[in-house]
Amino acid sequence: MTRPEIRTAIIDILSDIAPDEDYAQLKDDVSFREQLSMDSMDMLDIVLELRKQFKLQIPEADYPNLVSMQSTLDYLEPLLADK
């Protein structure tokens, strides 16, 4: 998957978890929790959805990589390169 494809997939996941937000305005370098109405349970939903959709088992120690869109893409790009 390319970086833009991964971004689209993440937006789809976020849209399901927090459906009341406007993702057109999402700033990639700002944390999700700062700009979206999300809490730790929502962050766990992102992990679960990545597991379901891409068979990615993300270790708990790596969860901080999912803090913003930019850090998420940096983390996922190599993992999803051949998906």
């Binding site: 349970m41 766990l44 939903d45 679960l48 597991r51 379901k52 088992q57």
Partner: peptide
């Protein structure tokens, strides 16, 4: 759908 793998069980 995931062969009863409990890692897919929701935290909710």
């Amino acid at each position: 759908q995931y062969e009863y793998d409990c890692s897919f069980w929701s935290h909710h």
